[in-house]
Amino acid sequence: MHMADALLSPAVGGTMYAVSGAALAYSVVKIKNTDLSDKKVPIMAVSGAMVFTAQMINFTIPATGSSGHIGGGMLLAALLGGGPALIALACVLAIQCLFFADGGLLALGANIFNMGVIPCLLIYPLIYKPIVKGGMNKIRITIASIIAVIVSLQIGAFAVVLETMASGITELPFSSFIILMQPIHLAIGIVEGIVTALIVSFVHSARPEILDQSKDGRKLLNKVKTKTVVITLGIFTLVVGGVVSLFASSHPDGLEWSIAGVTGDTELATKGTIFDAFASLQEKLAFLPDYDFAHGGIGGISGTTVSGIIGALITFAIAGIIGLSISIYKKKHKREY
């Protein structure tokens, strides 16, 4: 479910950064108010590292022969409580993005929202907590985990679809994207729900105080605060929906849109002798110079020629040559010393 940079537009990425940033800030303030922050830090860190590790452990799914791994948002929330879980998960996602190319830097905000904010701040207080409220036992934990994980994965998958659609990079129609995403994540959700339930009930039977501790932390919040979370998130969702649809409606992206606003065209007019010289040079060198890419109806392709492809190949070659020569030069230089 990690979204990559390549599938997001800057407008959507930026908006999601703002939303997740606000949610994170909210969690930080909440933890500071509970005054447990000093004791919580190592626990949060180790739980985050644990989710990271758990994602590397493949488990076999019975009767299918295939294997999968857990996502861990709800597991963290059950162990730590919503706010700390969100912070830990955001850090895990940041590390995965920075060191393992899993999800992108621009997409980090969206990923934190889909996999962190939804399970930790939304589903955990609204579904998990009410079910286990009456007293923790194996059955309640199992029911709560499975339902909560399935619901949060469904909403998360739906958010992925919305964000991708708003970015307008894939051609996949909305309906088939939904049909593709939701059932897959239902299957993943059932398995992850069961695994989460197994882990939480094991911890509950072996060392209940680990779970109880986070429960005490939660007791400090009264109902009003939970309500505030929901309301804040609701408002944010509306704002996001508004902003995203504004950007996504007819303009391919913010930067192009703003350039168009300045010059009246999506590309700046290039004038001057140097450009003319290059243009004529390009025309002379170009292979099939007047072949047009554009066939009415395809919006983004703007009169590029096959010469462009050749140009691309040449650029790749130049890049390779520059790279190679720098490293060869460096190696020689080192040997001299």
């Binding site: 739980s47 488990f59 695994v195 197994l198 094991f202 911890v203 072996a206």
Partner: peptide
């Protein structure tokens, strides 16, 4: 999986 990860936790 429950006891494995649970023990790790």
């Amino acid at each position: 999986m429950g006891s494995f990860v649970g023990y790790l936790v």
